[in-house]
Design a protein around this nucleic acid. Structure first.
Lengths: 299, 299
DNA sequence: CTGAAAGCGCTTACAG
DNA sequence: CTGAAAGCGCTTACAG
């Protein structure tokens, strides 16, 4: 680049970075050459030599799901506030992301391989992980209390034959519902999370616990199509607390998690880990965020 | 790092990168020291010396809006396929993003300052930009045809007093609706995009064109709260084509854009610009993506 | 106002 | 199996 423009490297630096102490004519000539050659400075060369924004890797599921999108929105905003950039990836491409980030936050439970593989000691904060990793921080969800509240709410309204929709492998959220019903002496069957009303009707349920809000929306639509009254005949509960639950008919009751709080906690923790002094691990790299039950029209 | 471990730099490289030709004992010792010192290799040092994934900057509005989230989801997936990383930012923080990316795609119309400021010749593709920028590629939306179709649909169903909700500054989408109504000899008033039914009712409209789908959802909810029949008393049209329009009651008719196609076109274009040979600009750095009208329950 | 030297932290040959 | 040398593309002092 400096060759064709007929100037030295550092003159290029001065022109491209709009620094003082350069002849305007020279600068214009250099910029013209830069444009001509489609030159732009290497992020790596620059990053090596001057302090630059750190980059946070954010690992989320399909952004089409507002649950992940809402979390990402808050993380983006908070990261910008702290002067961090954010690289995002969906689960498949974790390894690359690790090479591109200074720290990682996200739903590592979705990933195919363990996070941090190939890059030792990258600070990692896992959100709602299936199991604790000794070297990672984590954000844990506390569902028991809110689940009990939801169950009490359903029982007070006459629920006796609830059905809990769940992943094939089983999940903590479904287990929590089954347990809470059992505590009250009511048995809750578990069925596949993608089941439709044609599958469910034979069991004559009077309440459905969806796997998440998106599943709840799907059920509401399916029930409406079959002229099943909600909440009169069947009550429906979602999980996640999506803002969109306010827009469906009837509005979806749900076990909500405050994603802004999750994002804030995760960022605090990962920054703490990233800036932690050598050898010293923070006292307890865990934050707990509680769900809360939002009773709306569908129950 | 190599000092405390008692080995040379390149032995550290071999250990950390899991390369062959290193004594297992040495490797373990180095890795232990790395963990102890909270060391991890500089992205910049490495990036300077070995070919690494390029990084795409993605500039979108609030991810809380499924419109942006859906676009981001597709961009993420497509970028991963091509081996690009993706840094995301919302409008305020464009400048930083430019320093962190090798190319930029997004809704630059949302940005406060022009994209590319401070970094000459960064390839940029703008989506639905307010005005053309000579050096940038762009994805243009073609709304006229679908807008005419939506208007014809409304007129056939008896619409005579339509209201178009718009930004304070005015927007192409609203203008297209007003024009299409005018062509058919029907006058459409423009009102603020945040207007509620209490503001609108005095004008006795029989159709409402929301600013976007989110606005449409809001209107549906507002109308339901006031016991206004949709579509019997008032018809409602949104813009964007969000999948969630299928879940509200009634389902929202909308001017849909295929965001997957937008993402694909934008990525093709930006990659082409990024890899373009010096001095040679592609024939025509513009792609046009048409809207199409989706008639659903709300009209 | 402009350029020659040094160094950022890594990896890739090349020697031992 | 391990290390000394060279160089990736930049910027920051320092000379002229």
């Amino acid at each position: 680049m400096s060759r064709p423009a007929g100037v030295s490297r550092q003159t290029v630096t001065r022109a491209v970075n709009d620094m003082p102490g350069i002849n305007p004519g020279t600068r214009d000539r250099v910029l013209a050459a830069a444009r001509e050659l489609n030159y732009h400075p290497s992020r790596f060369g620059r990053g090596l030599v001057k302090p630059s924004a750190r980059t946070l890797g954010l690992l989320v599921g399909d952004l089409t799901n507002p649950y992940y999108a809402d979390l990402a929105a808050t993380v983006l905003r908070l990261a910008a506030t702290r002067g961090w950039n954010v690289v995002m990836a969906e689960p498949g491409s974790v390894a690359d992301l690790v090479g591109a980030a200074d720290a990682v936050v996200g739903f590592t439970g979705l990933a195919l391989e363990p996070p941090g593989a190939g890059a030792p000691n990258l600070p990692v904060v896992e959100i709602d992980p299936p199991r604790a990793h000794p070297a990672h921080g984590r954000i844990e969800f506390e569902r028991r209390a809110a689940t009990r509240e939801a169950v009490r709410h359903l029982l007070e309204r006459g629920t006796r034959r609830p059905l809990v929709l769940d992943l094939p492998g089983g999940s903590p959220r479904a287990a929590a519902f089954v347990d809470a019903f059992a505590e009250a002496g009511v048995h809750a069957d578990v069925v596949d999370r993608d089941a439709g009303w044609v599958d469910l009707a034979p069991r004559a349920p009077d309440a459905l616990v969806a796997f998440n809000d998106l599943g709840g929306f799907r059920l509401l639509r399916d029930l409406a199509a079959h002229d099943v009254g909600v909440p009169q005949q069947v009550r429906v509960v979602g999980v996640d607390g999506l803002a969109l639950g306010e827009f469906v008919t009837p509005r979806l009751s749900t076990l909500a998690i405050d994603l802004a709080e999750v994002a804030r906690a995760a960022l605090d923790l990962v920054v703490q880990l990233a800036q932690g002094s050598a050898g010293g691990s923070p006292e307890d790299p865990v934050r707990v965020v509680p769900h809360r039950f939002l009773a709306r029209g569908s129950t």
